[in-house]
């Protein structure tokens, strides 16, 4: 088990390092692409800014608070997208048959799939998210302590882990339905957009869904509500909002199991 993990991480590192080197051959192109990624993903925040030129609060949240939510989810999602975002090309590989090639190499398939065409330009989204998060933190009405700062860091990291789990599960479903990448996109990219807004603007059923079914609420909603000292719309006990890391571990474990089941199904059907 430990050996597999080590082998996976090592293989992942090798492939990623090679793609970074390949990208850096065209340095200007890398800079332009990263800048482009920064600007395009930042348009979502510009939309929020435009909205706030007409209103003062959205679902009871002011602009700095929204910036905190937005920055946290963007940073988490950006990290997961950078590290695992290409795993959803699995479906295409299954369809054109090139997936078999991954099975021939002595490196765990998930590591290869995740590292495939690693795109450093996706740093753009992370930088953008972190900038907005920083601005939000500096403006919200919160008494910052070391504890709260650490809580924020843990929030971003476990958020990234939760998004990663969704990416892995989404990729795994493509073993059964090779065309399913759009469905998983609605949870990853769609989830990221959802979490940019406060939970109070959505229907309770939706909030319940992203809390208990696909645990996206633990990416930023629940922990950020605690940071901001607000009630959560579902009225859950306070300790729930601290469960981010546990939820992340559980989600990753579940995603890993789904991936294994998917891979096993592929290897016995050869679809």
């Amino acid at each position: 088990m430990v050996e597999r993990w080590a082998s996976g991480l090592r293989g992942y590192g090798l492939i990623v390092a090679m793609w970074i080197r390949a990208t850096m051959v065209y340095r200007t192109s890398f800079i332009i692409n990263t800048l482009g990624n920064f600007l395009v993903t930042g348009l979502d925040f510009v939309a929020l800014l435009l909205m706030f030129s007409h209103i003062h609060a959205l679902g009871g949240f002011g602009l700095p608070e929204i910036a905190l939510l937005y920055g946290a989810t963007c940073s988490s999602f950006g990290l997961a997208d950078l590290l695992l975002g290409n795993a959803d090309r699995i479906g295409q590989r299954v369809r054109d048959g090139s997936f078999d090639i991954l099975l021939l190499r002595p490196v765990p398939v998930l590591a290869q799939a995740a590292a495939d065409r690693f795109a450093p330009r996706r740093l753009g989204r992370i930088v953008q998210g972190l900038l907005v998060l920083g601005w939000g933190i500096s403006r919200v009405d919160v008494n910052w302590t070391i504890g709260k700062a650490l809580f924020t860091v843990v929030m971003v990291i476990s958020g990234a882990a939760i998004f990663s789990a969704v990416f892995i599960a989404g990729a795994a479903f493509q073993f059964w339905a090779a065309e399913a990448s759009e469905v998983s996109n609605s949870f990853t990219y769609g989830g990221c957009t959802l979490l940019q807004y406060p939970p109070t603007v959505f229907a309770r059923e939706l909030v319940r869904g992203v809390t208990f079914v696909v645990p996206l609420a633990f990416v930023n909603w629940l922990p950020a509500l605690r940071l901001l000292g607000r009630e959560d719309p579902l009225g859950l006990p306070g300790w729930v909002s601290c469960c981010g890391p546990l939820v992340a571990v559980a989600a990753l474990t579940a995603a890993g199991l789904i991936w294994r089941a998917g891979l096993r199904s592929y290897r016995s059907t050869g679809s």
Binding site: M18, A22, V107, R117
Partner: peptide, 20 residues
């Protein structure tokens, strides 16, 4: 079907095989 990396120079593909 190639087992090499489509976008990489042949030599880089070999170097990656070596490490893998």
């Amino acid at each position: 079907r190639t087992t090499l990396w489509w976008d990489l120079p042949l030599g880089d593909s070999f170097a990656l095989v070596r490490r893998m």
